[in-house]
């Protein structure tokens, strides 16, 4: 387990290195643009820092509280409709950037969560409760309601399609 984590860690650092190379190339072509991108990064990073603290706490809570047996029963193959509901509601309530949730989903997947339910969770994140007033302001109440219903419906559709893929091969 630990050695596999170290391997995944190397991939992450390699990814960061490649991104820094992209910045280097951009900087060589247009230093001002690279500077603007870095300044934008600084602002975003400042906003993301508290979310990272929450992610750390959630990862710790998941490791402490969610036994593989519970995950298998509620989010695994034997979960049934309850599992789909937990994944969809969890996705709607989840805040922060999507990649912050990848680690938690990996943790849950390693403990037995179905790929289809991870897909439902990620899809239902498209319904952003705190941003609904703004969406209503721009597009109207009817549009916002219709879109949210379709987003939730299609989160299940995406999960069903992942089931088909799960059945064909291990993902």
């Amino acid at each position: 387990m630990e050695s596999s984590q170290k391997k995944k860690g190397v991939g992450g650092w390699l990814f960061l290195l490649l991104v820094l190379v992209a910045y280097g190339v951009t900087g060589a072509i247009d230093a001002e643009m690279a500077g603007q991108a870095l300044s934008f990064f600084g602002k975003v990073m400042y906003k993301v820092l508290p979310i990272l603290a929450i992610v750390f706490l959630l990862l710790l809570a998941a490791d402490l509280l969610f036994e593989p047996k519970w995950i298998k029963r509620n989010l695994g193959r034997e979960a049934g409709i309850k599992g789909w509901l937990i994944a969809a509601v969890g996705g709607v309530l989840a805040t922060g950037p999507i990649y912050a949730w990848y680690a938690l989903l990996r943790e849950l997947r390693e403990k037995g969560m179905r790929a289809s339910l991870a897909a439902v969770f990620l899809y239902s994140r498209a319904v952003k409760l705190p941003l609904l007033p703004l969406m209503i302001h721009y597009f109207g109440t009817a549009y916002t309601l219709v879109l949210c219903v379709y987003l939730l419906g299609f989160s299940i559709v995406s999960g069903v399609l992942m089931v088909k893929l799960e059945d064909r091969e291990t993902i």
């Binding site: 860690g9 991104v19 992209a22 870095l38 993301v48 992610v55």
Partner: peptide, 25 residues
């Protein structure tokens, strides 16, 4: 969790850097 988090950090920082570059370019 700390080990997982340290492995996660370069991905998050890389992602944010890449998003910032994409938005600017």
């Amino acid at each position: 969790t700390a080990l997982r988090f340290v492995n996660l950090l370069p991905i998050i920082i890389g992602m944010l850097l890449l998003s910032s570059l994409a938005v600017t370019v």
